[in-house]
Nucleic acid binder design. Structure first.
Lengths: 246, 246
DNA sequence: CCAAAAGTGTTAGCCGTACACCCATGA
DNA sequence: TCATGGGTGTACGGCTAACACTTTTGG
């Protein structure tokens, strides 16, 4: 049977925040199809062909569940990638055809990014646990297909969403966090360093970030006060974004 | 032949700005498939099935060209809509099957918004000119398929892009425009009124909006100074968006 | 001379930015 | 007692927001 229309897939760029190293990490799936090529060509983002009867968002949630054992993950669709030549190598086409069990000429993918708590991700629950790994952004060049491009778009979309409070960056943090963790997360997302005192002054004006009556324990320095995030206050605070940048 | 995967289409939400009436308008395509239903069920956004060999962006440009006779239109992909039930009525399914000449069970659409100058849009050049019309946002409820939802997403995406200077709102204006026109455009996009003096103070700080040595003519009131938009300065000015909203 | 829209300045309070030292803890 | 990161204040300049009257034109 000839294929007359492009296949449709979803791909998920899963972000996790390593609070120790203060780094934004990305979950990738490692295949073994290129033996003689160096670099990251064996790395791709987790994804799946969209079944005929499934909603796009549901397909993405399903991928995430099979991957991390997590349900109701924070997931945002950010772009569809449809270059007819996005499958670059014969090895990739053959891999995809074997993997999905259909003849494939072209795949259009709807890309999502997900925010998860890196400590919640339980690889034991994953069907494909031994093929998953976390990498940092600067180790993600030259991935399979157009996935390095997809990552650039994902990072830009995340940054945009965070700037306008269109996403909950707190999904990446544990329920109790320090201001230093929060600051390094913002710095990782925005791609720039910020001044500690000014950052804290700003955060103290955010009604949705609230201090607990509790401190860090067991650290070899002055223990930090812990904070939590109030989602309802956050939702309310969205309303007064008015002023555009000139 | 059974269809095993969803069809893929692109749809374009075309915005135009009516500077006289100070309204944001939307270009819709009118069909004649519902006789006995009231409302806007006959209205849809222009779109097309994506051919097997075409890039998504190219397909959208092609739709725009056939529609408006314009090339290199400002076009931004903003969301993919893939609810399996987005074709709601039998009449719509039959229309789509007749229109595209294939059996259709499900269509996933990649939605774009376009900004065009309403005065440049030459309906004479359009293949389907007698079926196109401009409507305002508040007259766009209950459109065909999920197109009213698509419009809501388009407006939100446009607003977001304008806030972050990710799109050129000046594509909607003639090359020479007054500050009153510019202000009413911002107001239409942001959905809120602004103070004239404060708006002008802000605009005067934008290096990319420059006064001409020329005024309006033939108006029955004090003629307004004309301004133009400098794209290079605009691109340069994007770099210093840093501060997130709390 | 009237109607209509253009154009203009000041004040008060808030926000962004730049910058350096003491504090609490575990080892 | 030392190393480590936590926590804090001030001053300046720029931005936002509120607010009302005069000017220029065509009719």
């Amino acid at each position: 049977m000839a294929q007359l229309i492009p296949y449709l897939s979803v791909d998920c760029v899963v972000f996790g925040f390593d609070a120790e190293r203060q780094e934004l990490n990305i979950l990738v799936y490692e295949r073994e199809i290129f033996n003689d090529r160096s670099g990251n060509l064996n790395l791709k983002f987790p994804g799946s062909i969209v079944p005929m009867e499934d909603d796009l968002d549901d397909s993405a949630q399903k991928v995430l569940f099979e991957l991390t054992g997590l349900k109701n993950v924070c997931l945002k669709q950010f772009h569809a990638f449809g270059n007819p030549d996005r499958i670059k190598f014969d090895e990739e086409k053959k891999w995809a055809e074997r993997h999905y069990g259909v003849k494939i000429d072209r795949v259009v993918t709807i890309a999502y990014y997900a925010l998860i708590r890196i400590d919640k991700h339980n690889p034991e629950q994953s069907r494909i646990r031994d093929k998953l790994k976390w990498i940092t952004h600067d180790r993600a060049e030259n991935m399979a297909f157009d996935h390095s491009l997809i990552l650039e778009y994902a990072l830009a979309a995340l940054k945009k969403d965070v700037l306008l409070k269109d996403v909950n960056v707190f999904e990446l943090l544990p329920p109790k966090f320090t201001l230093a963790q929060l600051q390094s997360l913002y710095e990782a997302v925005m791609g720039k360093k910020m001044d500690k005192r000014n950052f804290r002054k700003k955060i103290s004006k955010a009604s949705y970030i609230k201090a607990l009556d509790e401190k860090q324990r067991g650290v070899a320095h002055k223990p930090a006060l812990l904070f939590y995030f109030d989602k309802d206050d956050f939702e309310r605070s969205k309303e007064d974004i008015n002023t555009f940048f000139v």
